[in-house]
Structure formats: C-alpha cells, structure tokens
Design a protein around this nucleic acid. Sequence first.
DNA 1: GGGCCCCAGTTGTCTAGACAACTGGGGTGA
DNA 2: TCACCCCAGTTGTCTAGACAACTGGGGCCC
Lengths: 247, 247
Amino acid sequence: MDLPDLDRHSAIPLYYQIQQHLLQDIRVGKLKPGKPLPSEEVISRCLRVSRMTARQALKSLCSLGVAHSQRGKGTFVSEVKLEKNIREVQSFTEEMEARGSRPHSRLVSSEVVPAGAETGEALHLSAEEMVIRIRRVRVADAVPMGVETTCLPQSLCPNLLDRFDPRTSLYRTLLQVYGIHIVQADEVVEAGLANTEEARLLGIPKGDPVFLFTRTSYVEGGKAVEYVKSIFRGDRYKITNRLGAVE
Amino acid sequence: MDLPDLDRHSAIPLYYQIQQHLLQDIRVGKLKPGKPLPSEEVISRCLRVSRMTARQALKSLCSLGVAHSQRGKGTFVSEVKLEKNIREVQSFTEEMEARGSRPHSRLVSSEVVPAGAETGEALHLSAEEMVIRIRRVRVADAVPMGVETTCLPQSLCPNLLDRFDPRTSLYRTLLQVYGIHIVQADEVVEAGLANTEEARLLGIPKGDPVFLFTRTSYVEGGKAVEYVKSIFRGDRYKITNRLGAVE
DNA sequence: GGGCCCCAGTTGTCTAGACAACTGGGGTGA
DNA sequence: TCACCCCAGTTGTCTAGACAACTGGGGCCC
C-alpha cells in the first residue's frame, strides 16, 4: 500500500485528496474488488491526519458506492464497475457524450405559450402563466433518437429564445446564462407505439415501440423549473439504472 | 423549535435519535419545506451534544434527500415529497404493496439447468454450472402484469425449489432461509412488442408495447446472485425514477 | 443613494483523543 | 477435541475544541 503525500497548503480538503488517491488506485486495479482498503488507523498514521479525516475519506468512497464498511473487519472495495454510474440528472447532450456518441439537435418549434393545466401543475404555475416551449429532435451520430418537448417558466429565464442555440445543451445555457443548476428530477417512463407524426420525425415505421418520458426537474431546494415530455426510439435507446438499497 | 430529550443510556446512537425526531417534525409538517432546520450550534447547545454529533444528524437527513445544506446560510427542508422514494431494490411483491395493490404470482416453470453463456457471464459462473430457473407470471389485483424469469446459482441456495412457494416473495425467502440480502442491482430497460407466447400469458394482443427488463442483483460487497429477464405490459406498468445530482 | 467594511451566524474542514462494539485468531483449560 | 476467554485490529459513536469560508445585514463614510 502506498499512500500519497498530501498538499497541506492546497485549498483542496485533505479528505478529498485521500479519497481521490484511493479512487485512482481502485480505477487502475492497484486495489482490487473484495480487497480491504487501508484502515482508518493506517491512513491516519501514515498521512499524519486525524482518524476523523481518514474516516471521512473512506465514508465518501462508501457513499459513492465503490466501497463498503464492515464493523470489526474493515472497509473493502466493492465488486461493481466504476463505468456504470449511478443514474444521474443529465441532459441529452451529457448522456450521449458519456456513451461516446456525438449528439446534436434539430429545432422543430419554439414559442411562448400559456402553461395549460398539465404543465402548470407540474411547474406550480397557474394555467395562464406563460412558459417557453421548445420542441427538438434529438440526434446522436446522425441517427434521430427521439423527440423532446421542454417547458420552462418564462419568468425564470426571460429572453431564453434569443440567448439559446437550440442545437446545443439547454442545461449548459441555463447554468451559464441564468445560474440555474438542475440537481434532481422525477421521471415517469411508459412504453408505447410511435404515431404518424413521431414516426415521420424519427424516420421509423409507424407503430414501432417507443419510450414515453415525462420528467420534472428541480433546482436545489426543490423548486420545479422544467417539465419535459419526450419520445425515444425503442430500437436504439436503452435505459440503464443502478438500484440502491433501502436503509 | 422544540427538541426532544435524548435517551443517553439507550443503545440507539444520539445522532440517530436526533435525526428521527427531525424527520418526524418534517413528516407532520412542523418543519415546512424551504424552512431552515435548527443549526448545528443550536442542536449542540440545546441537546448538550457535541457539534459533530449534531452535524452527523443533519448530514444524514441530507443523504436521505429530505434536506440540503448551504454553507454560510443553514440546512433547509427540501421541497420534494417523502412519499416518492428514491428508486430502490424491491421485489415485485414489495413494489406492488407500496403502490397499494395486492400482488401474487403464478408459476409457469421451475427447473435446474446449466447456466449457459449469457446467464453465466452475468453471474460470474461457467456456462456448465447449474442454476435454478424460475418462470412466473406476475399478477397485481388479478391483472397479469408481466412474465419474469429468474436465475440463481444452485450452489448459493440448494433445495430452493423445495423451500420456496413461488406464489410468494423470492427476496423474502432468500433473506429468511439463506440469509441472502440483496442490496443493489443493475437494470437495463428496453421497449419492445409482445410476441405470441407473451401475449397469451398476459392476455393482451400480440404486438402490444412492452418493457423488457434485464436485471442483475448483488449482495453487499458486489457478488452477483440473481439474473432476471422480464417482460411487463406497457399499458399497465410505469417506471418511476428519482434522478439525483452528480457530486 | 451608493459603496464599503465589519460582524454575527452558519457550514466546511480538521485535530487528538476516548470508549463501545464487533471480528477473527490463538491459547488455555477441561 | 472442544469450549471458552482473551487480545489485537477494526469500525461506530462521541467529545470539545479550533480555524476557514461564506452569507446577509447593519452601519459608516463618501
């Protein structure tokens, strides 16, 4: 076991430096699944940090899912692979890039309209309040993958349609221009069949299997900022979930 | 703000007593979404615990997703509802009971067979090793919802077929009889169409939209113990996901 | 009014230690 | 041989403090 020297004058917390080093050792296979990580006491003594700091590094690895602790025994590297991330809030752009594809989007329509009952309820607006509605075909590696309709309250991001290039990532624009950081989302998925218009936009036969997504996205603190309905091809798109345990 | 008296002689950790009390206050609406929780210093002073213990209670609420902290400001109750749980490993039985339905199952077949390439790879077995394969129709409130095929290594749960009533919960039997506690699973979902046999078992027209699930389940430490392929009706079944943020 | 500084309150990180609870192995005694 | 005890190693919980970093508001000065 080799442990790194810590940079004690860095702005990076000590526990985080330790966590990153252990994570790196796991990634490159220096620490193998099922094998114990250095104990709190060993880290504490070798790196001259308090046991609580060593402990914080190990616990952060546990909450990442790459390790698990057993009282009286130690902390061990888990078997599960690092590549399979816990399902996270990602824009289509981020998701496709993570899968190694080149994403882009084609604008179908963008307009400012009253929210209506369904969208209003999801975003906690009255049905009369105005929302920005953007409809796009999502494309990965030149293959149309799905059709996505996004609604955002106009009050939250005025002039979005002037400032946003619909071919790029909406989430990045929200963060960079408006400081809106989406951290959580609730999503409902149904299975259905493509209707005539969807089939035309996606270039697939009518009646092909599709996913129907309905997603509400939240900023920290739980305020709803986005309501999305989308349709994705069943033949080219898969959902990958990591399910965790109940405490 | 009223804080409870702590039982200092209890085996229940102090931070957990505090966490449970705050959780109760949130549940009954005494602490409302968006409002601050008592600060670390207040908890520490009122309950005569160290600040680290108060902090542990608040951080555990954050990791449950019911609160969030902001440096320099405080820890606040999140808006999201408690009823909508983070997606968790659940047996069909648990899932349906949580949705308020009465689940049961009808056995299609159960047998001991060689794993084969696909199942063997998923469970880290050779293709020749024997697995127990159970095929069941899953029913909720007398409506057939899906067809599920579960494979488990025979070495892990010998005599399972004698000890397990296929109409009940497999996960409960694994836990109670073999001490196997499934804590994590990877799941891939695809959209497809029902073939003739599936349509017959589910009582739906051939070609109706269905979900195709492929799930590998793990015990603590990451050992794979179960490989499941299942088909669920698209018209009666929805997937609900809570997506979290990346750290 | 506007800009600036300072201060109280809050969370983030860290220390040095303590005892409890549990695991696994070795040794001892019946 | 077997049961039991004890011990070293490990994680879980807890204490009492320290300083850093950030927020928001009040007050001061220009």
